[in-house]
């Protein structure tokens, strides 16, 4: 190892011994760094490649976040059958509740993702907030009362084969409630759940304007809902994009016929898949354009449109009872012959 003929080591001063050491040290450092890198890459290969893409973290602003149970957890047996049928009604309302639907909509047209999607009035949030006092009919409403309202206004029951909503106690209500109940499994009753209802949008000083809305509609809505607002059907005539006005849409008594509700829904959910891509102002204006079109009359109307506006639409943000292009909105559409 040590060379006997080599005597330099014995005479080296400490300074000399350090000399020439700098480079070996940096070579070791290089090797060590490389090693560290190899190990890090090993970890990366192992851990990063294993994990899927990150999912957006849920934000929390005081309200309780809630996730409805997966479809696969619907129980078997009679309870499950009722839940399943409730879901079938919710999704395929025109068939399952054929006698009581007077337009081309289904529950899920506005309550997206079969009533599961937050910020589109999800049913798990609705279930835990009923019974509830509602100013609309000035009484304590059970869920059945509320559903009755949906059939009357949003589903335009007046033009249905039976001429109205399902009668009290109809199994349609029970099954729908069974579905809602299941959707709200483990949800806290009475608590404010995140994503309940439609978001409330503040109205800016610009207000809302149907002419601005016409442009917004043409750019962002018409490709699916059609220039004429009649939505689109697939090749079997099945409604894919729901009609927004006209005889096949919700009537003047529906919550969606109020611009603030429609604006909140649009802002959070439209265009479908690109929710929150419109500005608040665009949402208000588009809602105004949609609301300023004729639709089936308010079933509560006894006298003239003006009387009804005073009785039921006071203080609402709506074009009901206003005259646009020489047409008095609220007059109603003539019922369409059913397919």
């Amino acid at each position: 190892m040590t060379d006997p003929g080599h005597t330099a080591t014995e005479t080296e001063s400490p300074r000399d011994q350090r000399k020439g050491r700098g480079l070996p040290h940096s070579i070791y450092a290089l090797g060590g760094g490389l090693l560290l890198f190899a190990l890090v890459m090993l970890v990366r290969d192992d851990i990063l490649l294993r994990s899927g893409p990150p999912t957006p973290a849920a934000q929390d602003n005081g309200a309780i976040a809630f996730t409805p149970p997966p479809m696969s957890s619907i129980p078997n047996g009679p309870a499950g059958a009722s839940i399943r049928h409730g879901m079938a009604i919710f999704e395929n309302t025109g068939t399952e509740a054929r006698a009581f639907v007077g337009n081309g909509l289904a529950c899920r047209s506005c309550h997206l993702d079969a009533g599961r999607k937050a910020d589109s009035a999800p049913m798990w949030a609705a279930w835990v907030s009923y019974p509830q006092y509602r100013a609309k009919n000035k009484k304590m409403n059970s869920m059945e009362d509320r559903l009755n309202g949906c059939f009357s206004y949003s589903m335009n029951g007046q033009d249905s084969p039976s001429g109205g909503p399902p009668p009290k106690g109809d199994p349609i209500y029970t099954d729908l409630e069974a579905y809602f109940h299941w959707l709200a499994s483990n949800a806290p009753t009475g608590a404010k759940l995140k994503g309940a209802g439609f978001p409330k949008l503040k109205l800016s000083s610009l207000g809302y304007d149907r002419d601005r809305g016409r442009a917004v509609y043409a750019q962002h809505c018409a490709s699916c809902h059609g220039d004429d607002g009649q939505g689109r059907r697939d090749l079997n005539g099945r409604q894919v994009f729901p009609p927004l006005w006209g005889a096949n849409s919700y009537n003047w008594g529906a919550g969606m016929a109020q611009i603030n509700n429609a604006a909140g829904f649009i802002k959070a959910n439209m265009p479908l898949g690109a929710g929150n891509s419109l500005t608040d102002q665009q949402a208000w204006d588009a809602a105004a354009w949609i609301d300023s079109q004729e639709r089936p009359k308010d079933p509560r109307q006894k006298g003239s449109v003006q009387d009804n506006a005073a009785a039921f639409h006071e203080g609402e943000k709506t074009f009901y009872g206003k005259t646009i292009d020489n047409h008095l909105l609220g007059t109603g559409t003539s019922p369409k012959p059913r397919l």
Partner: peptide, 9 residues
Amino acid sequence: GYSRVGGKP
């Protein structure tokens, strides 16, 4: 060598 993930995400 890249299928270490085993199952699918």
